[in-house]
Amino acid sequence: MFADLNSILNTSPDDVRQREFILLSDRKADASFLIHHFLSFYLKAGCKVCFVGLVQSFSHYSAVAQRLGVNLVQARQKGQLVFVEALKASAAVMFSESTDDAAQMFDYLRSPVPELRALFESVCASLIQAEADSSAPPVLIVDDVSVLLSLGVSVRAVLDFTHYCQANICSRLQGCVVTLVRCDDDDEDEDEDDDESSNRLLRALSHQCTLSLRVEGLQTGYCRDIHGQVEIWWRGTGEDVQSQRRLFQYKVYDKSVSFFAPGTSSAVL
């Protein structure tokens, strides 16, 4: 959890906003530090978290969370964290190795028209149980949905999944959803008509989300002191309407991230 980001977003673990749909995206940069931020943030806030890890294994997230001061193993044993080992399970399904519960969740990968119904149902089931015995909102974190595209799921199916998640978790259970989308590096104009691109997924999700954090590499290339820029965009929901954008540059440290206005890096000034 990064205190800097909390103050920018004007939240704290004691004051978790409900019904947030947070979209993280990156292009020519790595936004996974934001995933780790939100994971530790919601765990500290005492929310029940369902984490779908398609990119890394549990031990990786656990090691990073340890540095940020959150013990994932403990949280998992307490039942606060439901970790879906999607990385291992999807590989196992592909090679028809296992038939356990986790594998069934990813059964769609073998069907001719992959859809994410089973995944949605299991995610929902794990969060609905939580709702009964806690006051904090349930949270779903997906890292990251563009991996599903690579596994052969269509953009439409992914959008169905996120739409259902938003309807159920944000709207019905008053919870939050955090997803990460990684974009292709090529220009957006080129794949204007490409139906299956992550750019299209990103555009569609931008319409759905209430808060968007867009991480991009610097246009001028790699820099030792500035790792990239992040555009934070509050898109109004129905109630609070005015949308607002702010741009920051950031640098990731070992245990924290510093955000500063463009051009005001400590290395420059």
């Binding site: 709207s171 759905q208 929901t237 129905g238 109630e239």
Partner: peptide
């Protein structure tokens, strides 16, 4: 199709 009812109903 897009947003829940309570959001649309607001105001």
């Amino acid at each position: 199709f897009d947003v829940p009812e309570h959001e649309l109903r607001a105001k």
